[in-house]
Simulated assay, not measured.
Amino acid sequence: MTASAPRIVHIGGAHPYTISIGEGLLDDGSALTARIRGRHVLIVSDEHVAPLFARRVEIALHNARPDLRVDRFVIPPGEQAKTLARFGDAIDALAALGATRDACVLALGGGVVGDLAGFAAACWMRGIDCIQLPTSLLAMVDSSVGGKTAVDLPQGKNLVGAFHPPRAVFADPSALDTLPERELRAGLSEVIKYGAIVDAPFLDWLEANAAPLLAREREALVEAIARSCLHKATIVEHDPFEHGERALLNFGHTFGHAIEAEQGYSGAGNDALNHGEAVAVGMVLATRLSAHLGMAPAADAERLRALLTLYGLPTTLPAGLDADRLIQRMRLDKKAHAAGLRFVLWERAGAARIVDGVPEDAVLETLLEG
């Protein structure tokens, strides 16, 4: 099966590329190989995704270009695999492949795979091509777009990484058929984020289309993915290295990353939150902090909480987390700086802004409310 009339989102700037969204893209060898310059390809995936899609991609690649040498590097699933040690293993895999400067890394999986694969591509021979093949909704609408790559440390999330824009992104919504329900909802958290920060009418659309999105109806999913990617593309094009406007994309993430780090990145388990769930809680906390600071009406915070609840996402801090320890995590977060804690807050739905030097007592009060 080949892709038919995919939706295309263009990323401009110094390193332009396209995001293609459409059915059958994972099997479209002609489209994939058109972005591959050399003959060495390393498919990076995880133990859940590789058995589902890796062989399909390999067949598509070889049918279009029999000369390609294609290897796989497969990691355990989950955020706990996004480490410097696994990064080193990925580099070893590129060395074993004999990857040259025109080699390409294919990131086949969710956000963890995309981050790790992209970072390996950024560092091998000081930078080779990476094509993102996101298979989770969260990766399709967020982590595969924009060129942020990284691994985690015990002290915090994404502390070691590089900006390395992909050569292309191919988002095939058919991959979402196999996505666990929890992961689908986690991805919808990042979709909701775009409405919260820049597009209040998108929140209206999401309220009206919760049922088809949760039922994985193709038309609704493609629209949500395309609209989210368009918002991220616009922001990234203006600020590729996160010196200003791009930080808006971190709405809910300062709280969310602190939660993930404090829980030891164990979101694959039943008790800990995964990334999208932590961001959902973080967005609610950010809106409440905005209300505490007199920036936004509390009613808007309640509306966002209700929308997240509609999508089956958590909206309160997990039990047992210490507020003081979460603040310590936030001090190390890469979004903080010498002037103190930095948050993305909002004035109303669809109108977020970056606020520096947020008083820690206001943050503590928000955390203690849960």
Rank of each mutant, 00 (worst) to 15 (best):
residue 253 H to F: 05
residue 148 K to H: 02
residue 19 I to H: 02
residue 295 M to L: 15
residue 299 A to M: 01
residue 301 A to D: 01
residue 315 T to F: 03
residue 292 H to D: 15
residue 326 L to R: 01
residue 343 F to C: 05
residue 178 T to E: 11
residue 181 E to A: 15
residue 243 H to L: 12
residue 293 L to V: 09
residue 316 T to P: 04
residue 274 N to A: 11
residue 169 V to K: 08
residue 66 P to M: 08
residue 126 R to T: 10
residue 154 P to D: 13
residue 270 N to H: 12
residue 32 L to M: 09
residue 88 G to I: 03
residue 42 L to V: 08
residue 278 A to D: 09
residue 317 L to D: 00
residue 343 F to I: 02
residue 341 L to Q: 04
residue 327 I to D: 01
residue 156 G to N: 05
residue 12 G to E: 11
residue 46 D to R: 05
residue 14 A to G: 03
residue 348 R to L: 10
residue 67 D to G: 15
residue 213 L to C: 01
residue 266 S to L: 13
residue 337 H to N: 15
residue 140 M to D: 02
residue 171 A to K: 04
residue 103 A to R: 05
residue 199 D to H: 09
residue 269 G to H: 10
residue 106 L to V: 05
residue 312 G to N: 06
residue 235 I to T: 07
residue 330 M to N: 08
residue 337 H to I: 01
residue 87 F to K: 04
residue 173 P to K: 07
residue 118 G to H: 03
residue 216 R to T: 01
residue 192 I to K: 07
residue 135 T to P: 12
residue 81 A to R: 02
residue 149 T to M: 00
residue 265 Y to S: 15
residue 57 V to R: 07
residue 343 F to H: 06
residue 3 A to E: 13
residue 272 A to R: 14
residue 28 D to S: 09
residue 73 F to G: 04
residue 71 D to Q: 11
residue 341 L to N: 01
residue 305 R to S: 09
residue 20 S to C: 12
residue 181 E to P: 08
residue 232 K to C: 10
residue 103 A to S: 15
residue 274 N to E: 15
residue 205 W to S: 08
residue 290 S to D: 13
